[in-house]
Amino acid sequence: MISLIAALAVDRVIGMENAMPWNLPADLAWFKRNTLNKPVIMGRHTWESIGRPLPGRKNIILSSQPGTDDRVTWVKSVDEAIAACGDVPEIMVIGGGRVYEQFLPKAQKLYLTHIDAEVEGDTHFPDYEPDDWESVFSEFHDADAQNSHSYCFEILERR
């Protein structure tokens, strides 16, 4: 099963200049909980913004210009990325925008964090048809001392 995991502000903004323009430790914990011990696929820009392999996960970098870091697996196509994951129950696609666009048609599940923030962004989550998805989990949280904005975790499964 292919799943996408993303944090989205208003207007589906997911990033600005290779960074997330908010401070939500709870979302980072949600991300870790849902990706640990699963292969993660990301684009080169996302890889560069993280700066290191995510521990406890097979890191697969999709790029037309593969790098030389041998701590991760470099691939040039969506099919190659899927094959590099091996026989696993769930593959997690973690961004960025172009990689989400490439995998959305193949995805069966979306793990979304909806952030109540209007922020400037240069990267967006692809538009998706809500009628194609069923919400199977939703959990709202107010902003607090650690988390700069209110947010809602949601899991959607393709109908």
Rank of each mutant, 00 (worst) to 15 (best):
D122C: 01
N37Q: 12
S3M: 00
D122K: 00
A6C: 14
I82G: 01
A7C: 13
Y100S: 00
C152M: 10
I60T: 04
E157H: 07
F153R: 03
D70G: 12
G56W: 10
P21Y: 00
S49N: 03
A9W: 02
K32H: 03
A19W: 10
D127S: 12
P126N: 05
A117W: 03
P105D: 08
G51K: 12
Q102G: 08
V40Q: 05
L36I: 08
E139A: 07
I155Q: 05
S63R: 03
T73W: 10
I50W: 02
C152G: 12
I115H: 03
V13I: 11
G121N: 00
S3G: 00
I155H: 03
A145H: 11
I82Y: 05
R71T: 13
T73P: 06
K32E: 03
L156V: 04
C152H: 11
G121S: 01
P89V: 07
P105H: 12
M42A: 04
H114F: 13
Q102A: 11
P21L: 03
F137A: 10
A29R: 04
M20P: 00
A9D: 02
A84G: 05
R52I: 14
S64R: 14
R159S: 10
T73S: 12
D69F: 09
S138V: 09
L24R: 00
S135Q: 13
E154C: 14
S150A: 07
P89A: 12
W30F: 15
F137M: 10
S63M: 04
L104G: 03
D131M: 04
K58H: 12
V136G: 06
P39V: 14
G51E: 12
M92Q: 04
I5G: 01
L36A: 03
V72K: 01
N34G: 10
S63V: 08
E134Q: 11
I14V: 15
H45G: 12
V13W: 04
F140G: 13
P53C: 09
G56F: 09
A6I: 14
Q65K: 11
M16W: 08
R12S: 08
D142T: 10
F140P: 12
P130I: 13
K58F: 11
S150K: 07
R44C: 15
S49L: 01
K58P: 12
I41A: 04
W47T: 01
E101C: 06
K106S: 11
Q146D: 10
F137E: 08
L8W: 04
D142K: 09
P130E: 13
V88H: 12
A84R: 05
